[in-house]
């Protein structure tokens, strides 16, 4: 791992980094890769609660931002929604848990797509549902 630090001290440092740095640091070595993607590390990382704001500047464009849950409401990261709805309308935000957002394209259609989206690490999973 490291000549310098035991795992718990290393975790104290790595949990303070933004997701983009952590995704990159998976390349450091195999131990860091398993540490960063481990259940325990992710639980420790999620200790700081963040707020998700959805807003729009023009019709059909969805903007999201992660904000700190304090008086300043500081914007930490901004994302554009990379998905398109069938109707050109908005997604319905079903819910949000541990950084994963569940979107549903169920406005004005009988079949719809559910997307589980983790914008911080740019991963998603889409499920197409028929009725």
């Amino acid at each position: 791992m490291s000549d310098y630090l035991p795992a718990d001290a290393l975790i104290s440092i790595l949990t303070l980094l933004p997701p983009k740095s952590l995704v990159q640091l998976r390349c450091v070595c195999k131990t860091w890769q398993s540490l960063i993607t481990s259940h325990d590390f992710i639980c420790a990382y999620l200790q700081t609660p963040l707020l998700l704001l959805r807003h729009t500047e023009k019709y059909g464009e969805e903007l999201y931002s992660l904000r700190s849950d304090d008086a300043d409401f500081t914007s930490l990261r901004d994302f554009k929604c990379p998905f398109k709805t069938h109707s050109g309308c908005f997604f319905r935000v079903v819910g949000c848990c541990n950084g994963v957002i569940c979107l549903s394209d169920d406005f004005a259609c009988y079949n719809y797509t559910i997307i589980l989206w983790n914008p911080s690490i740019r991963r998603y999973l889409g499920i197409f549902v028929w009725f």
């Binding site: 791992m1 490291s2 000549d3 310098y4 630090l5 290393l10 390349c27 450091v28 070595c29 195999k30 131990t31 860091w32």
Partner: peptide, 8 residues
């Protein structure tokens, strides 16, 4: 910086 050996 962390004196880590690359095992990839």
């Amino acid at each position: 910086i962390f004196h880590v050996e690359n095992d990839y």
